[in-house]
Write a protein that binds this DNA or RNA. Structure first.
Length: 488
RNA sequence: CGGGGUGUAGCGCAGCCUGGUUAGCGCACCUGCUUUGGGAGCAGGGGGUCGUGUGUUCGAAUCACACCACCCCGACCA
């Protein structure tokens, strides 16, 4: 038992770290708050990226790439934006090192000070809108629908692998539109893309909603979000889409001439998801034996393990089956390594979250069967090798669906409606989860609740029906319930 | 940024309080044999600036001081 994972019931945070580190998704690096994304974690990200990229292209977007560095002066052009990010910026001040006089290594060369400091981008609105000024002259240049896959740096005080790292990988869409309405539609469209991706590929149910003013992105007029519920009852913001109004157009003077030859400021959106989604995936499906990955995103969907014996016809059987599965479009790995025992491999592939494991031993070959084990329920059964491809394909779909159903049931049974502040406090403290309650719409009440319970308004759900009620704190009238939770 | 913790082999740790031969254990690694359908057994072997610096001492992993790094918990944030 070389690799033991702390059970979730003992310490959820420790369990999370164990799963991430021991499954080989990522490890800590020599740089504080920055992680090394290992091949398994990166392959997962590549799969996510491929699907999202396709979805972005289907909705009319194209990719581009903007600089990593942003002149300091750009950041301060939009007042709220700079306020939101100033406290967590990495700053480049010099461009050269030199040998230390005492021979102790290298030091920053004071003569190589930059005239204007450069900020390592925490997000790219400013440099992109500075560029859009040149790209947009006419209504014919709009809409401008651009996405960028990049890394960004936010000097967070407290970091956790995938959930919050000082450097992270993400995509950021930045679009420009001729009308307010069109920009709002874009922001909503991309939120919908994210929600569909979360549910259809990650098998992770999400609540779509809008943020309250105090939780809005720095510089946005409206922030849309998808909120997911983790197994420990805490919420995780899984993606955001912002309607930026004309804030950045005004800050960077981006205007166009409309059909009536009138000069207008451009309307903007930005939207992003990050490697945080990998953390969300872990905390939605995984268990005390390690990762559980949804088949649609799993880097390896099927692993075929041969049970070694002296004579080894298993190998050729395994390779033949792998070939058939690959031809059917599946991602397959074959493990015929005779130096590790079967039990070790079983545990190892479970730890790494492979959805379906096939075992082939001499017994199976004699019986014309294979043993198929599914990761989500740990069930095993023998099936005839003749129908292996169809059955495995079907099983993968079943697993994908089961993960979503299971996660949905979890969210449903951990979403509570409360009518009083007392009930609210008790529910948050004892059950966690999502809490739907009436709120009077003021920042004061929101802050009060946060202070008392550490719960925040995750969003005002888009699909929430209007339902007259009274604020749980002030008793003032409210027209709909909002979604509260303690959050990551 | 506040609080706590930890730095000894790739990983996990013991040793430190009470200084003293060659720094030890488990896992992993290498070799051999036996095993092999749920994390194999035996035998042998390789691997160490004891986080860094300064000090105390005949002698420091061990004592003192300073520093650094990372992790965890909070406040802030994707």
């Amino acid at each position: 038992m070389a690799k033991v994972i702390t059970p979730r019931t003992v310490d959820y945070a420790e369990w999370y770290n164990d799963v991430v580190l021991r499954s080989g998704l990522a490890e800590y690096s020599a740089v504080r708050g920055c992680m090394i994304i290992k091949p398994l974690g990166y392959a997962l990200w590549e799969n996510m990226r491929a699907v999202l990229d396709q979805m972005f292209k289907e909705t009319g977007h194209v990719n581009a790439y903007f600089p990593l560095f942003i002149p300091k002066s750009f950041l301060s052009r939009e007042a709220q934006h700079v306020e939101g990010f100033a406290k967590e910026c990495a700053v480049v001040t010099h461009h050269r090192l030199k040998l230390a006089d005492d021979g102790s290594g290298v030091v920053v060369d004071p003569d190589a000070k930059l005239e204007e400091e450069l900020i390592v981008r925490p997000t790219s609105e400013t440099i992109i809108w500075h560029t859009y000024r040149d790209w947009i002259q006419s209504y014919r240049d709009l809409p401008l629908l651009i996405n960028q896959w990049a890394n960004v740096v936010r000097w967070e005080l407290r970091t956790r692998p995938f959930l919050r790292t000082a450097e992270f990988l993400w995509q950021e869409g930045h679009t420009a539109h001729a009308t307010r309405q069109e920009a709002i539609e874009e922001a909503e469209r991309m939120l919908d893309v994210y929600a569909r991706f979360a549910e259809e590929y990650m098998a992770m149910p999400v609540v779509r909603g809008i943020k309250t003013p105090s939780e809005r992105f720095a510089g946005a007029e409206e922030t849309y979000c998808i909120e997911a519920l983790m197994q420990d009852g805490k919420a995780l913001q899984a993606g955001t889409s912002h309607f930026l109004g004309q804030n950045f157009a005004k800050a960077f003077d981006v205007t166009f001439l409309d059909q009536n030859n009138q000069r207008q400021y451009v309307w903007a959106t930005s939207w992003g998801v990050s490697t945080r989604l990998i953390g969300a995936l872990v905390m939605t499906h995984s268990d005390d034996d390690g990762l559980v990955l949804p088949p649609r995103l799993a880097p390896v969907q099927v692993v075929i393990v041969t049970i070694p014996t002296v004579e080894e016809p298993q190998m050729s059987h395994a390779r033949a089956l792998a070939e058939q599965l690959q031809r059917a479009g599946l991602r397959v790995q074959v493990d015929t390594d005779p130096t590790k025992r079967a039990g070790f491999k079983f545990a190892e592939y479970e730890l790494r979250g492979v959805p379906v494991r096939v075992a082939i031993g001499i017994r199976d070959i004699e019986a014309g069967t294979i043993e198929v084990a599914r990761r989500d329920t740990k069930e095993k059964r023998s099936i005839p090798v003749s129908s292996a491809v169809e059955q495995i394909q079907q099983l993968l779909e079943e697993i994908q669906q089961n993960l979503l159903d299971r996660a949905r049931r979890f969210v449903e049974s951990n979403t509570h409606r409360v009518e009083s502040f007392e009930e609210f406090e008790r529910t948050i403290e004892e059950c966690g989860g999502f809490v739907l309650a009436h709120w009077d719409g003021t920042a004061e009440t929101e802050a009060h609740i946060k202070e008392r319970t550490k719960a925040t308004i995750r969003c005002i759900p888009l699909d929430s029906p209007s339902e007259p009620g009274r604020c749980i704190v002030t008793g003032k009238p409210s027209v709909r319930r909002v979604l509260f939770a303690r959050a990551y």
